[in-house]
């Protein structure tokens, strides 16, 4: 089963950087696995821990991509806010016995299409290795 396992990734992409970086990957026709479904958010600072958890419950991994720290967030410090939350959430996941690398936070600028494609590829491989997230319904 694990050979054909295709992980599912839900991605929260900040509209200014992560989302624009994903657009750039498309404009440059870079290929990456169709494992990822993006959701456009105003800023990574908008994302709550609960909703990252919720997304993780419904997938195998969650990617969050926003503007580079320190100064690129279009709303001054949303990216820091997110960074702190994700660090905390990862600790929590560890305690729950879930591998924290199922949540991945990346700073991807509007020009970094290449980075976006690489991150999706890497993350997909990593999740394939981890296998499906066993859900307790």
């Amino acid at each position: 089963m694990s050979e054909e396992f295709e992980p599912r990734i839900i991605a929260f992409l900040c509209r200014w950087c992560g989302y624009a970086g994903a657009d750039m990957a498309g404009t440059s026709r870079l290929k990456y696995p169709p494992t990822i479904v993006p959701i456009r958010v105003p800023c990574t600072g908008r994302i709550e821990m609960e909703q990252v958890l919720k997304a993780l419950k419904r997938s195998d991994g969650v990617l969050i991509a926003g503007c580079h720290t320190p100064g690129d967030c279009h709303y001054v410090r949303g990216n820091f806010q997110c960074f702190k939350r994700i660090a905390l959430l990862k600790k929590l996941l560890r305690q729950m016995g879930i591998n924290p690398s199922r949540i991945r936070l990346e700073w991807i600028s509007a020009t970094e299409g290449r980075k976006f494609a690489r991150v999706v590829r890497e993350f997909t491989e990593e999740l394939k290795e981890l296998g499906p997230l066993r859900r307790v319904e």
Partner: peptide, 9 residues
């Protein structure tokens, strides 16, 4: 500006 930082806080 509609960033939502307050919402998640």
């Amino acid at each position: 500006e509609g960033c939502g930082a307050c919402v998640s806080t």
